[in-house]
Simulated assay, not measured.
Amino acid sequence: MAEWLYEDGIGEARAALVDHGRILEALIEPDDEGPRAGAISPARLTQIIQPGRRAIATLDDGGEVLVEPPPGGVSEGRRLLVEIIRAAIPEPGRAKRATARAASADAVAAPGPDLLTRITATGVPVVRLASHGPDRLEAAGWSELIDEAMTGEILFAGGGLRLSLTPAMTLFDVDGALPVTELAIAGARAAAEAIRRMGIGGSIGIDLPTITGKAERQAVAAAVDAVLPQPFERTAVNGFGFLQIVRRRSRASLPEMLRSDPAAAAARGLLRRAERTGGAGTMQITAAPAVIAAIERRADWRAECERRRGLPLALRADAALAISGGHVHVGSI
């Protein structure tokens, strides 16, 4: 039976929909991701870009959102309530602003539903995990999933996927040693599973081996339909082996979130490990300087880790370590 595994972690909440020991969907909610989809937020209209179509509003915390469309009769400088439709999306060099619309006349300011609220609303049982219990997320493949999202390298029987992020779409390239039609079907299925597992939305492209037969192309599309839950739209597989999918996008995908700040992501992962590592004495996290700096910038993370474990936390920077190469030791130092 499928169930959600939920952790209220240090710096982030995390959840995975697990069925028969496999992660079907995974979600991470950092504590600094900004306004969530569904939030009703006070704002000031600061710039009308296209009258009646698009404007920029500044939230009370200083963040900016695109309002599409801006409310009629509201001029620049006026205050209004906006409803966040899509959270901000991190991108190299700049982030896509959150998108919003004018809230209804009877709306009141409220934060959007958090991760626990969203997974509870699915009706699937939710199991809240404790750090002193078995690591059921790890047993289901949590670390492997994080590594796939960070590197973009995803293996399946007989081949592999390479996931690439672009400003226009998320791309999957399929490669392997299977016969062409088998590889295309297996690759399409693996890509669809990864799309669901990593919460990838928006425009998605799957570059498959070139297959010429109509029946074979239909079999490839059917493999996607069998794995990826609705709602989504897709094209047929064209003669060059390309299939495009469009899914609703209300927040950043796992790869977008983790790759936007790899040091902070690694820091939160090490704090999770420190919270779960047994022993007495001092907890010591040894990691690349950027990862240590990410923890040092958040005194609340360090304090919460020490509170939960009842032990002091020491930090040691090692320039020889990669971002992903940190480790935790508990004992005398």
Rank of each mutant, 00 (worst) to 15 (best):
V82A: 02
L27A: 15
L165V: 09
R22N: 11
P111D: 12
A87R: 05
A274E: 05
D318G: 02
V126Y: 01
R316C: 07
A105V: 15
R197W: 03
T166K: 01
A223M: 04
G202F: 10
G239E: 14
A13G: 11
L271R: 03
G34Q: 04
S131E: 13
P289A: 02
V224F: 06
A223R: 03
T282F: 10
L163D: 05
V224I: 14
Q284F: 00
P70M: 06
G239V: 14
G201L: 07
A121R: 13
D31A: 13
L163Y: 04
I84H: 01
G77C: 01
G152D: 08
E233Y: 07
E304H: 03
K96N: 11
A287S: 08
L208S: 03
Q244T: 15
W4R: 00
A293Y: 00
K214E: 15
E304V: 12
A43T: 00
G205Y: 05
D261P: 00
D175E: 12
G141A: 08
P289M: 03
A98M: 06
R79E: 01
R118Q: 14
D261H: 03
P51K: 14
D225A: 15
L137R: 01
P69M: 11
R86T: 14
A320F: 08
G152W: 09
V328F: 04
G278R: 09
P231H: 09
G281Q: 09
D147V: 13
D60F: 02
D175Y: 02
G9M: 08
P262T: 06
R309E: 07
P90G: 05
E12T: 07
R101M: 12
E12A: 13
T181M: 06
G62V: 10
A191G: 01
P134A: 08
A219L: 06
Y6R: 05
A280M: 10
R302H: 09
G201M: 05
I28H: 06
R128C: 10
T117S: 13
G310D: 06
G73W: 04
A287V: 12
I84S: 01
D147M: 10
D261T: 02
D175N: 10
G9H: 07
L165T: 08
F232N: 03
G63C: 04
A303Q: 10
G176I: 08
R22W: 09
A39M: 04
T170W: 02
R268E: 10
A299V: 14
M169D: 12
S260K: 02
D147G: 13
L81S: 03
A13F: 06
V174P: 05
G9I: 13
D31L: 11
